[in-house]
């Protein structure tokens, strides 16, 4: 697949009620803020929040689905800017901002159903 500047791709994921539990089991992140809504409320988060790294994994999936080869993704970074709650829908929009020296730089916009950015400064590098 030829990757060119300006190319775009999209993806989306619904956060089902039990996603943090599945993610906790698979990743080992059983922090109560992710699996106990009462605890989440008590510490001012308004309920249980999805593990940020699960949101990042959703964003990364959009990239690897687009390239078709998971080994092509060389870097991903982000800031976790807003909590992701159960039943949220996360939409990802990728744009290739630059292609140079065998690497494509991709910017990802990652928002919830209200348009709020849940990840910011998402930078990805893909081998071309």
């Amino acid at each position: 697949m030829a990757i060119e500047k300006g190319q775009t791709f999209t993806g989306s994921e619904k956060v089902d009620k039990y996603r943090p539990i599945y993610y906790a089991g698979a990743s080992g992140d059983f922090n109560p803020i992710h699996i106990d809504p009462e605890f989440g409320k008590m510490v001012g988060l308004g309920g249980a929040i999805l593990q940020g790294l699960c949101t990042l994994a959703f964003a990364a999936k959009t990239v690897t689905d687009w390239t078709g080869d998971p080994g092509k993704m060389k870097k991903i970074k982000c800031r976790f800017s807003a909590p992701v709650m159960m039943e949220d829908t996360i939409s990802v929009e990728g744009t290739v901002t630059d292609v140079q020296a065998g690497r494509a730089r991709v910017n990802l916009k990652v928002i919830n159903q209200n348009g709020a950015e849940v990840l910011q400064k998402v930078e990805v590098e893909v081998e071309v």
Binding site: P32, V43, Q51, G71, K75, I76, K77, F80
Partner: peptide
């Protein structure tokens, strides 16, 4: 103080599959 800790940023670089 773990209950007050949240994940702020993450960077990952992949060198080998």
């Amino acid at each position: 103080n773990m209950p007050m800790v949240v994940h702020g940023e993450q960077e990952l670089e992949f060198l080998e599959v």
